[in-house]
Design a protein around this nucleic acid. Sequence first.
DNA 1: ACTATGACCAGCG
DNA 2: ACGCTGGCCATAG
Length: 102
Amino acid sequence: MEIPEHVDRVLSVVELIPPGHVMSYGAVADVVRERGGTASARSVGTVMARYGGAVPWHRVVNSAGRLPPGHERRARAALDAEGVPFRGERVDMRAAAWYPED
DNA sequence: ACTATGACCAGCG
DNA sequence: ACGCTGGCCATAG
């Protein structure tokens, strides 16, 4: 099967996220655009839903720090193991949010 | 916490 | 190319 270009761009950004940190869908979209591609928060979510299995998808959360619907359990376990700080059910974005330097 | 509205993009006919 | 639809969103009220 065929992997579209924009999908590859999104996935390569997600791969950059270091363990112990997270990025929001919107932030990933921003980086993709900085890199000359096109993306929106929602399109990133769609890509993750379909092709996220090959990358650290659990490091991508929404801007409120909520985990992806249907994967809360697994994401929580993975993030927990990496030492990502939580505030109740949500990731503490202030402490865990990450953005690439260049 | 919940709803409503906005905005953007890929997929499909 | 074009319009339509829906999405693991964002933000304001």
